[in-house]
Amino acid sequence: MSKKRYTHIFFDLDNTLWDFHTNSFHALHAAFQKFPNLNESTGFTTFFNTYSKYNHELWNTYRNKKVAKKELVLQRFQKTFHELNVSGVDAGEMNSLYLSEMPKQKKLIEGAVELLEYLMVKGYSLLIITNGFREVQFKKLEITGLAKYFNKVFISEDIQSPKPHRQIFEYAVKSSNAPKNKSLMVGDDWEVDIRGATNFGIDAVFYNADKQNDEQKIKFIKQNRSLVYSVNSLKDLRSII
């Protein structure tokens, strides 16, 4: 099958280009060390795993528009403190320290810079669609040097519509003057990035770093009217575009 010609490529940021798993671990550890009460009451690994559980749950709720940002950022720490019987630590202060440490972390997904260099030379219009918080996402892009590759950055907090909702994809595509049939979304989250993009009607690439083998996903790829590709590394994108 011949390659389809795309002109606009929309990237997710976290865990697609910026290594969220690794960077969030180190950012939270830096914040954790500034609270003696935490060091005395629990080990960091237990704290991180408990926090990650609640953070994941609350982000799913946030994407479904059932919790506000100000509640999310406090509850993820409040719930962690409650489960671990931690007292004397302010959830708001913990969150502020954590978010201040996040953009300082610079680890990127392997092959990210090489891919973006390749695509920029080829003349593609490169854009970001992300669900992260505005004050953090722009700093990540600047500090890692990724900002120079992207024409526009679309953040759910600004648009008031998180992925996978149709509105954020529609806003991003229209604001970029991107033809839908020449637009491609690249992301690591099947439900948020891939279903979101294809439900809007644009093609998508599932960055499947964990090599998930889910029959429902394979069936979706075969049946959906939009094209859905799956790659295990960013360098494999070159074979598609």
Rank of each mutant, 00 (worst) to 15 (best):
T50A: 08
L13W: 02
D210M: 09
L74P: 00
K163A: 04
L126Q: 08
I155F: 02
L17P: 03
E157A: 07
I128V: 13
A204D: 05
Y118K: 11
F25Y: 15
N85Q: 13
D158F: 04
V186F: 06
Y124V: 06
Q33L: 15
P162R: 05
P103G: 06
N64Q: 13
A30P: 00
D203E: 05
Y149W: 06
T7H: 04
P164L: 12
V136W: 00
E40S: 14
Y207N: 01
V121D: 11
G132Q: 05
K211L: 10
A30G: 01
Y6P: 03
G111Q: 09
P164I: 04
G88P: 11
D188S: 11
Q75D: 13
A91E: 12
S96Y: 02
F47H: 04
S41E: 13
M1R: 08
F81P: 00
Y124F: 15
A68Q: 14
A197D: 07
G145V: 07
Y207K: 03
L108I: 09
N208K: 09
L234R: 07
K107T: 15
D210R: 12
Q167G: 01
Y51Q: 05
L127Y: 06
D14V: 09
Y51I: 09
K104Y: 00
S87Y: 05
T198Y: 05
K148Y: 05
F169C: 10
W18F: 11
V228N: 06
L119R: 02
